[in-house]
Amino acid sequence: MIEITESAIDHAAITDRVRSNRAGAVCTFLGTVRELTGDRRTVALSYESYPEMALRKMAELEAEARRRWPVIELAILHRIGDLDLGEVSVVVAVSCPHRGDAFDACRWIIDTLKEVVPIWKQETWEDGGTEWIHPGLAP
């Protein structure tokens, strides 16, 4: 399951969705809106995507993860638009027969997503400054 959504993400439902009798392990990663980055305080956060390409890249991630690990079910959701502090911006949920693969696949997907999926984060800091962040392309 691949999705980009402007609505709040029900991460528990997503986790449930990837459960399977064939799986011995479910690993769910949540990215959430952090208030403090170093000593800078975030007051607002907004995500923008290039939706066609982002969905395509996310589908490629799913295919590659399934090639590398014995994935049973997999879900990748990214939220875009304006988010509040603490809200879930991204969910990666993976089920595998064993926990090692579930952890590895989940970690690889979120790390690679940050590198290749064209989704940008705009921070609005407490001092009023704004900044576009695309972590994967950081120097």
């Binding site: 959430t32 390409m53 576009w132 962040i133 950081a138």
Partner: peptide, 30 residues
Amino acid sequence: DEEYAGDAAIIGPASRLAMIPPVSGGSDEA
């Protein structure tokens, strides 16, 4: 066409083009 392209990649009239800007600096965390 929704794929990162090197400088030698060919563009035609029907190509779907986008500029994927780099970071303006900042954190490397989610």
